[in-house]
Write a protein that binds this DNA or RNA. Sequence first.
DNA 1: ATAGCCCCTCACGTCGCGTGAGGGTCAAGC
DNA 2: GCTTGACCCTCACGCGACGTGAGGGGCTAT
Lengths: 255, 255
Amino acid sequence: MALTVSQVAEIAGVSVRTLHHYDEIGLLRPSGRSAAGYRLYNDADLARLQQVMFFRELEIPLQEIRRALSDPEFDIAAALRMQRQLLSEKAARLHALLSAVDAALARLGNEEPMTREEMIQMFDGFDPSAYEAEVEQRWGQSEAYQESKRRTARYTKQDWQQIKSEAEATFARLADLMTAGVAPDAPEAMDAAEAHRQHIDRWFYPCSHAFHRGLGRLYVDDPRFTANIDKTRPGLAAYAAAAFAANADRAKPPA
Amino acid sequence: MALTVSQVAEIAGVSVRTLHHYDEIGLLRPSGRSAAGYRLYNDADLARLQQVMFFRELEIPLQEIRRALSDPEFDIAAALRMQRQLLSEKAARLHALLSAVDAALARLGNEEPMTREEMIQMFDGFDPSAYEAEVEQRWGQSEAYQESKRRTARYTKQDWQQIKSEAEATFARLADLMTAGVAPDAPEAMDAAEAHRQHIDRWFYPCSHAFHRGLGRLYVDDPRFTANIDKTRPGLAAYAAAAFAANADRAKPPA
DNA sequence: ATAGCCCCTCACGTCGCGTGAGGGTCAAGC
DNA sequence: GCTTGACCCTCACGCGACGTGAGGGGCTAT
């Protein structure tokens, strides 16, 4: 019943070198050796290899796998949850990439052999250079800002169009409410604020209610934002800020 | 307008070391140096960095990116298609992993602290040991077989259920056509054959029309396959083989 | 006894950087 | 004019999970 390296390798679909490696780092030591020093694996070794491969497939570092398998107290659930989180982020990133590639291919299909410059256009569908430096100062190295930069770098032109129209829609909704004389802490206004928060959360960075309230303040404090927003309707920036704050209070009432 | 490493790093969201590295390997050499030897990047350099980051995000090796950017004849479309394929496979794999993790977590939530052995069960939802040796002989070390082994090792129990029901559906479709007296080279039969081919292609290995034809032959030549398929309806294996061949001819007519 | 395939142990290579070590540069404040 | 601190430079080793020989022994069959 004792199997040699190549047999185990074949069964498990890994390379011989991989088995050597796992032996070296103490992740999977064969239970026996032949007289000539050949590694000999029994059923228990195979079972352990299965476990190793499971965790490896989840992209858990080998060292951690080793610890996990040796520690009977190891919290598998916690590890799985962490890993799940990591995997779903990776998946989301992959989907964004796929649509970026599709967009690129679509263009390639239609017209002339798209230049590389055109391709890049997809990636700077908006012009960050004007605001970027100052935004940086205000938001500093905040997590949110970093995350936003990471995310936005990946959006395609199509994405940007959708983002823009969505953003306009939420502000239009707020503008209508304002014109109708609805108070910014009315439920409808708060709902519109919430829609905006989710928009940010979806497209830019994880946006808590508290953070959203801060964003509202920025809209009135920073003349560039104020000017841009008040183009839709004068006073909208202040109205939006009040609605954001009310919505934040609704979610987590002030102490 | 000339930027130093840290400025470029900040803008692009990469590390200084990364820029050093890209310089070292000739992927992105700054267009200038200051008197003191500082790297100085201009707008063209930034543009090139954008391109590099685009391809890098697609997980293309840096060396290939370098070649791509230096070769004006480089077929971007082909590269994108290849990369798309690769990415979508990765995404599929990730989703399988996610559901595997979810399944594991679900069990963990309910019952006793699930044993590792239970966890592994997910991974051998089917029993390949019975056929494996012989299949190996027939298909030998073929690329397809290796690829299939690699892929199938990763499917979860859920996946297998879906695969199984999909497979049954395609064979049921063929069985219906056969009973209805439709010729195996009729369009409907060829469409059903094509559905089966895509099923294989999706779940097991890249399955060309030619390869699919060979698969059909295997279904009639190998009594184990024949018996299993003819359980649904006697003669179905032969009918399927004929339909596969017809479908292959349709895709690429015989010389 | 020879051939051919298996096995072993070093040990260096790969990729995309991270992370110092050791030292020069530059603008600002004292 | 000198120090401070934030930049910049060039080596050069480290990492993670193996790949890929090199050099040598073992096993089995003809």
